[in-house]
């Protein structure tokens, strides 16, 4: 079989994403080191990320509630293979750990990096706390990661 001819393309595109009102307020809160969720008046679910609508009740979300920056580690993993980092466009250094954190005051879990690697400290049920950056810009990266505190 002859060699295939290949035509290569490089994509360099940009999109302007509107945050929406709920996320705009949430991000403003992050700058102040504050986390807030939206609570459904019908079912009581406290949503992170905050969003316009409760999908179960089919009702608009309007009630803001405070959420702590500590909670429980519901799931964790340590990734060994280089994954594309959407921020830098380059593979992330390995190993890195991520987890699902249920913050006090929220009913959904939050997906974020974990400070520790290694199964020693990471376990389902561990108490974790957000490690905030000193300089914050109103993005989820204002939280550098979550640390196990107990």
């Amino acid at each position: 079989m002859s060699q295939p001819i290949s035509v290569s393309h490089e994509m360099d595109l940009a999109w302007r994403y509107a945050s929406g009102e709920a996320m705009e307020r949430f991000c403003a809160g992050l700058t102040d080191g504050r986390i807030e969720a939206l609570r459904c008046a019908a079912c009581g679910l406290r949503y992170l990320p905050p969003r316009p609508f409760c999908g179960d009740c089919r009702a608009r979300l309007t009630e803001w509630v405070a959420v702590g920056d500590e909670g429980k580690l519901e799931a964790w993993t340590e990734v060994q293979v280089p994954m594309l980092d959407a921020g830098t466009g380059r593979p992330r250094a390995t190993p890195f750990a991520i987890g699902l954190v249920r913050l006090e005051g929220a009913d959904t879990t939050l997906n974020h990096f974990l400070a520790e690697t290694g199964a020693g400290r990471l376990r389902v049920g561990a108490r974790v706390r957000a490690r905030w950056r000193s300089e914050r810009a109103g993005t989820m990266a204002d939280i550098e990661c979550f640390e196990v505190i107990g």
Partner: peptide, 10 residues
């Protein structure tokens, strides 16, 4: 992009 893109691990 606002919520989990920075931590996405596929």
């Amino acid at each position: 992009p606002y919520w989990d893109r920075s931590v996405a691990a596929g």
